[in-house]
Write a protein that binds this DNA or RNA. Structure first.
Length: 914
RNA sequence: AGGCGCGUAGCUCAGGGGGAGAGCGCUACCUUGACACGGUAGAAGUCGGCGGUUCAAAACCGCCCGCGCCUACCA
């Protein structure tokens, strides 16, 4: 038998086992397998990413599921990959270029994209390697990237089909614009932040009515240069006489109409009159459409004041704001308004400002031509899929969130004005009339214009939103669209992959990408596979720091998973995350927790060490050996309960329950009690006959149970368990590695209630002795000379008698007498009364009667309170009439037990009074 | 403003109509032949508040308070 070192050292084994698993091909899915399949596609991390706790949690959960299913014989595919993250990656490389004194514009598109590919080759797999060190068992042979050839083909196919079906269109509208990234953003890529701003009241003179003015309020005075109307509510009697009149817009020579709009205007806010700037505000834009107003853009793409459409602005004003940022322009405009007597009032005002989710720059509503997906026809089936239960959210609460969002969904702006990504497959012929000829949309790049056959064609410079390709991930990664020629081997495999692994079983993800990703995958899966992309969506929590703060670089409260893994071991981190992953609650991660589970790993390590040290020379494993001894029957019974519970919990995605159940069983049943129980049996030295049979039975049971524990824990702690498996005695024909061994299944016939009751009586008596030791300050090492136990009934007596030696050993007792008819000892003694037995220890030293009285009185008070409650209930006729019989009987039994205990304690107390 | 979630031991959190639980921390004792990353014993809770349903409520329902998140509005 190998000997283990005193503590588990994770660093020694983690790399080794990962290498072995990968070399053996254990991670790979099997296209030939007849077994039922289980598949997960990884939520692809950004190639710019570095592993954080969110990834660690997400990957741990997936790996637990994947390993659990694999061990249960499923044909498992866990498909890994990365996302090209258009804006983020482009930003990273642009920053690099800036340091080198150049820029993407100077390089040109082609050279820039080449640079990004180089960057990707160098750094793009960083996060994948970090995932490997977490122990994830993905099928690396099927690694995918959203810009791969196959996935790009899927993107084209989807784009063209949606276009042909009239679900993709191009239009000029107001969109969210990031003036730093220089691209459009989808609505959900804008994060709103509460900000302290100001509300300015401004006089707007009414045309042709002398000094009469309308007072409007605004938080963005600079946008007044783009005002094209003033709105009032159609039913607002204060303004009836003004409707149809005009405003002489201050600082400009512009005259703008006063219009009515019941949607835009809230009569109760401010004066009930509002400036309308369709070029710079989404609500105003809509109002502009309703009232046929024109849109004036006052800003360029860098969010600087652009004079192009401002020819009617006062020359002096225009000169001072031209080319200025929004903040600067605002100051200037306010100064002019004030100077010329238009500014009435400034007050503090809280409002929210939209910021770019990638770079935190304030986004501007900006008028520009973009590509859109018409979302309603896609959303409807995606809503039905969840309503009907075809797709299940875990925890269920997220369904409402999803449905609410989907029912109110708006068209999706999919074009981005960047270079890194899938360039939109739309071409324009410069020889044809651009305004009147539809763009050329096709799967392969056109060589010439299909209309005029000219070669003067240009591809749309925009690329698609990264999430457009991510939305296809569950099937594009499996090889869709497959070529339908059967002479190609590859195409055949793609069809097979889809057939075997689509729909995937479950998607594991954080709620932050519920809308970015999950919703879109469901829409695209239904549209292009005519089937849901996954059956279950497991939505996990956010990992926060110990104070509950969101981890962020700026706060400096990031706990780096890699350093945690280095300090405590990967398994400790994984177990921590699993144990804390309770549904619907964020994880507050504290290092003490991780340390605790590091200790747990070490506990199991040492339990194994103990077992191995006690395997006698020449020990031979006996297949299906019969078990006779109660302690062995007991631990096997307990084990099978644990197996049942763990499998049930995992089946319900309750990783926390499963982890805690295993912790409880391993530490507090197997280590605390079973190993201690086993010691007398294992100590039998080489003697022949009955004691050797007993010893071998216990050795074998201990090894069997340990082996089961190791398998049960493998999905949570893959490295430790693989290392322990390699040292444990296996049955012949057992798997070489625990990773490919069979996950334990509950055998109900192993449950033995009688044995469990018996052993809990033994535990009860040993605990009583320990309480007495502790109460009377008898040191653990000191042998108790004389102990008397008077069992409460014949059953207890039989059980305790059969375990006399064990109780003596574990209680460190010289003489132990057990018997229902025994008399209490004479002289000084301490006593502990329980429902199992009254235990007395003889004391030679001084006993502190006061202390003892206090202890007993306290215990009596607790039991009395319980007893009172029980008696009160039982004397209530309404209770005995209405409560179920079982409850009443239980209450009666409780009453008897409590009364007996109380009486005995009272007796002891009266003795102490003397 | 609306929606969702949460409020249980000092801390972090399970539980869930019928005897208040775990981990960490804390206190005391113990370096005993698996493990001090350990052992044994212990202290510690009006289960946020108020009402209601019920024989029985920490749990179910309603209202309120506090915290968090999301969506919308914010001229």
């Amino acid at each position: 038998m190998p000997t283990l070192r005193k503590t588990y050292q994770p660093q020694d084994v983690e790399k080794k086992w990962y290498q072995i698993w990968e070399d053996r091909g254990y991670f790979q899915a099997n296209l030939e397998s007849p077994s039922p399949s289980f598949s997960i596609v990884i939520p692809p991390p950004n190639i710019t990413g570095a592993l954080h706790m969110g990834h660690a949690l997400n990957s741990t959960i997936q790996d637990i599921l994947v390993r659990w299913f694999r061990m249960r014989g499923f044909n498992v595919l866990w498909l890994p990959g990365t996302d090209h993250a258009g804006i983020a990656t482009q930003n990273v490389v642009e920053r690099q270029l800036f340091k080198e004194g150049t820029s993407r514009e100077k390089l040109g598109r082609e050279a820039f994209v080449k640079r990004v590919w180089e960057w990707k080759a160098k750094y793009g797999e960083t996060i994948l390697n970090q995932l490997r060190s977490l122990g994830v068992s993905c099928d690396w042979s099927r690694l995918r990237f959203t810009l791969d050839e196959g996935l790009s083909k899927a993107v084209r196919e989807v784009f063209v089909r949606l276009y042909e079906d009239g679900l993709i269109y191009r239009g000029t509208r107001l969109i969210h614009w990031c003036p730093r990234c220089l691209t459009a953003l989808a609505d959900i890529e804008v994060e709103h932040e509460e900000t302290n701003g100001s509300l300015y009241s401004i006089r707007y003179p009414i045309d042709g009515s002398g000094d009469h003015v309308l007072i409007i309020a605004t938080t963005r005075p600079e946008t007044m240069l783009g005002d094209t109307a003033v709105g009032v509510h159609p039913e607002d009697t204060r303004y009836f006489h003004l409707v149809g009149k005009s405003i002489r817009l201050p600082l400009t020579g512009r005259t703008i109409p006063i219009v009515t709009d019941s949607i835009l205007v809230d009569r109760t806010f401010g004066t009930g009159a509002v400036k309308i700037t369709p070029g710079h505000d989404f609500n105003d834009y809509e109002a502009g459409l309703r009232n046929h107003l024109n849109e004036i853009s006052i800003l360029d793409k860098h969010a600087r004041v652009d004079p192009t459409q401002l020819s009617d602005v006062d020359d002096e004003v225009l000169r001072s704001v031209q080319g200025k940022s929004v903040v600067e322009a605002r100051k200037q405009i306010l100064a002019f308004l004030d100077e010329r007597g238009f500014l009435i009032n400034t007050e503090a005002h809280k409002h929210s400002i939209g910021k770019c989710y990638r770079c935190r720059t304030i986004v501007e509503p900006f008028l520009s031509p973009q590509w859109y997906v018409k979302i309603q026809p896609l959303a409807e089936p995606a809503i039905r899929a969840v309503e009907s239960g075809d797709i299940r959210f875990v925890p269920k609460g997220w369904e409402n969130n999803y449905l609410a969002w989907m029912r109110d969904i708006k068209d999706w702006c999919i074009s981005r004005q960047i270079w890194w990504g899938h360039q939109i497959p739309a071409w324009y012929c410069e020889d044809c009339d651009l305004a009147h000829v539809a763009p050329i949309i096709q799967r392969s790049d056109p060589e010439c214009c299909p209309k005029c056959a000219g070669f003067n064609i240009l591809q749309d410079p925009d690329v698609l939103d990264t999430w457009f390709s991510s939305a296809l991930w569950p099937f594009s990664t499996l090889g869709w669209p497959a070529e339908h020629q059967h002479n190609s081997g590859c195409a055949g495999e793609a069809e097979q992959m889809l057939q075997i692994f689509y729909p995937t079983t479950v998607l594991v993800t954080g709620f932050d990408i519920l809308f970015f990703w999950i919703a879109r995958m469901i829409m695209m899966g239904l549209r292009f596979q005519n089937a849901i992309p996954f059956h279950d969506v497991y939505v996990h929590a956010l990992v926060r720091d110990a104070e509950g703060q969101k981890m962020s670089k700026s706060k400096g409260n990031i706990i780096d998973p890699l350093s945690v893994m280095g300090e405590y071991g990967t398994d400790a981190l994984r177990f921590t995350l699993a144990a804390m992953a309770s549904p619907g609650r964020d994880i507050k991660l504290a290092s003490e927790r991780i340390e605790g589970y590091r200790n747990f790993a070490n506990k199991l390590w040492n339990a194994t060490r103990f077992a191995l040290d006690n395997v006698p020379d020449g020990f031979a494993y006996v297949e299906s050996a019969k078990i006779d001894s109660q302690i062995n029957l007991w631990i096997v019974s307990r084990l099978h309960r644990c197996i049942g519970d763990v499998n049930t919990s995992l089946g319900a995605y309750r990783f926390d329950e499963a982890a805690n159940r295993l912790y409880q069983f391993v530490w507090h049943e197997f280590c605390d009690w079973y190993i201690e129980f086993s010691k007398p049996d294992l100590k039998q030295q080489g003697s022949a006959g009955e004691s050797e049979v007993r010893r071998n039975e216990t050795v074998q049971t201990m090894l069997d149970v340990l082996q089961c524990i190791v398998r049960l824990l493998h999905p949570f702690m893959p490295f430790l368990t693989e290392e322990l498996w390699s040292t444990l005695q296996h049955q012949p024909g057992e798997a070489e590695h625990v990773m490919v061994s069979a996950y334990p299944l509950q055998d109900e016939s192993k449950a033995d209630m009688d044995v469990e009751t018996a052993m809990s009586a033994v535990i009860d008596v040993i605990s009583s002795i320990r309480v007495l030791r502790s109460t009377y300050g008898v040191p653990p090492r000191k042998v108790l000379p004389d102990v008397v136990a008077i069992p409460a009934n014949e059953e207890s007596q039989a059980v305790l008698l059969s375990h006399t030696a064990r109780i003596q050993e574990m209680g460190r007792i010289d003489s132990l007498q057990i018997g229902t008819s025994l008399a209490k000892p004479q002289g000084k003694y301490g006593s502990q009364v329980t429902k199992v037995a009254d235990v007395y220890i003889l004391l030679d030293g001084l006993v502190d009667f006061t202390k003892e009285r206090i202890r007993l009185e306290k215990r009596l008070a607790v039991l009395r309170a319980d007893l009172d409650r029980a008696e009160k209930k039982l004397s209530n006729a309404v209770f005995t009439a209405n409560a179920p019989v079982a409850v009443v009987q239980k209450e009666q039994a409780k009453q008897h037990e409590l009364r007996a205990e109380c009486d005995k304690i009272s007796l002891e107390l009266s003795r102490l009074q003397d």
